[in-house]
């Protein structure tokens, strides 16, 4: 059974006054198997962020369902949603979303503290992750004292420390220089090779090219998808670029 099943998700926003309706997602369906590394691509306004918010259970679909590990997120009551997110999902954001009141260590430990984990277990979990992400020396520092790449690695550490089913990343390389972005993408590939399921939403071809499968959404529907199969990153990059060009010109053709 697929780990994440998204079926016929539709999202309509109603503006506050007047009731003009905007359809952000018309009909999105796809599945994610355990251990997959998926990128979702699309231009601005294509509904990427809306989709991610729905996957993250931060927002509810107008119709359709999102089933994570056999559990329909719509059936979870509001009061339990936060705990559900905490236990099953890890988040990596474009602007890191680290808390400036916490040290790097405390930022990473935040989800564990929220779920009431004991101090000893926290430390046991933290040490190997910090080691793997190369931030062991930074633990006592504060977010304003470290670089963007280090901040993003801290955010990744925070996402993986709960051993989530799925990591959701929203434009994770958006605020990084190319060197730091390469490092982060390598990190994602490494995590994925250890069995971590990852879903990245991006419009960066480079970020998408390290994924195993790329979904393209346009105007609120999944338009196309490509599989990596045996391609290396460069070939994947080329293929994605070609697809995007085709989509863009094709889109114009249709208009």
């Amino acid at each position: 059974m697929a780990m994440l099943e998204v079926s016929n998700v539709k999202k309509i926003y109603t503006t506050r006054f007047g009731g003009t309706q905007v359809q952000a997602l018309s009909d999105v369906s796809f599945t994610v198997e355990k251990g997959e590394y998926i990128a979702i691509m699309g231009e601005s306004g294509s509904g990427k962020t809306t989709l991610l918010n729905i996957l993250a259970s931060l927002d509810r679909p107008t119709s359709g369902s999102v089933v994570l590990d056999g559990k329909d997120t719509a059936s979870i009551p509001d009061g339990k949603l936060a705990a559900f997110r905490r236990d099953n999902l890890g988040f990596v954001f474009q602007d890191f979303n680290l808390l400036d009141t916490f040290s790097v260590r405390d930022n990473i430990l935040l989800p564990l503290v929220l779920s009431g984990t004991g101090v000893k277990e926290m430390e046991q979990r933290l040490a190997p992750i910090a080691d793997k992400l190369g931030i062991s020396d930074l633990l006592a520092k504060f977010p304003y004292e470290i670089s963007g790449g280090q901040k993003q690695r801290t955010a990744v550490a925070r996402a993986v420390i709960t051993n989530p089913q799925l990591i959701l990343a929203d434009e994770p390389t958006g605020a990084l220089d190319s060197h730091a972005a390469d490092g982060l993408l390598r990190l994602f590939s490494d995590l994925n090779s250890e069995g971590q399921t990852i879903l990245v939403v991006t419009h960066s071809v480079k970020a998408a090219s390290s994924a195993k499968r790329v979904l393209f959404i346009k105007d609120g529907v999944v338009f196309h998808q490509i599989y990596r199969a045996n391609m290396n990153n460069d070939e994947m990059f080329q293929k994605i670029s070609d697809t995007l060009t085709a989509l863009a010109t094709g889109g114009e053709g249709n208009a």
């Binding site: 993250a56 931060l58 509001d78 009061g79 949603l81 936060a82 705990a83 997110r85 905490r86 236990d87 999902l89 988040f91 954001f93 979303n97 680290l98 808390l99 400036d100 009141t101 935040l110 989800p111 929220l114 779920s115 925070r158």
Partner: peptide, 15 residues
């Protein structure tokens, strides 16, 4: 902003 982040990381409104 701080509480928005916490909400995203998995803190619910009650907490």
């Amino acid at each position: 902003e701080r509480y928005e982040i916490m909400q995203k990381v998995g803190m619910d409104a009650r907490e």
